[in-house]
Amino acid sequence: MTKTGMIDFRGVNKWFGALNVLKDITLSVEPREVVVVCGPSGSGKSTLIRCINGLETIRDGDLVVDGQRLGDPATNMTRLRTEIGFVFQSFNLYPHKTALENVTLAPIHVRKIPRTEAEQAGRDLLAKVGLADKVDAYPAQLSGGQQQRVAIARCLGMRPKIMLFDEPTSALDPEMISEVLDVMVAVAEEGMTMMVVTHEMGFARKVAQRVVFMDAGAIVESGTPDEFFSNPKTDRSRAFLSKILRH
């Protein structure tokens, strides 16, 4: 009962005004585990993972990340965030910085890694996501898929313990989705602890140990990808799956 995972939600609630956006969430993510979060729009999936790095704050319950309790005065949130990579739906690359500068900015200024070392690591990471030839390109010169791969490299440059993905492929043209998913699969296979909000069920089947289905702010169902896709237990998850898997 008291075992602690890398990310531990215990009875977490959150309100936006009168709207109960997270309802009594209890969820534990083990180190090296990959958890996919899915559910209809407005179900609280993004809010759930945004709480983990404090982009949203919770009202009650406990949220413990990497052994540190959020909201505790002893927890240095800025420090904790360096251990958590966050990939946004809309990339949010720094438009005034090149791809390499995007990757090295936080390592140099936050992690205080020497510039030459950070740049070497940055080049290696951009090569790893297949963008060795784009190190000096600005975000506006890159396609959506390329921008999102830079954004993933930017997170990896901090050598995080956890990676969070908030609908990383939802803003992409269909032909660019697989290049981003391939990078995410590679990150997962290296043993990263990941929470991924996505409707890419192929990705979930391939690398996720668990699929969590949310609806109206609550976790309705949770299980292995095989269980969840072939034998959803609730009406709501069945209805959801029938909609996203129809085509």
Partner: peptide, 29 residues
């Protein structure tokens, strides 16, 4: 855009670092 602030926050930058490295260079132009 708000996303620029959030990207800075998520990478562990302090308020001053965010302003200096991310927001002000863009706002200046």
């Amino acid at each position: 855009p708000r996303g620029q602030v959030e990207a800075g926050v998520a990478s562990g930058m302090t308020y001053v670092q965010r302003m200096r490295l991310v927001i002000l260079p863009q706002a200046f132009k």
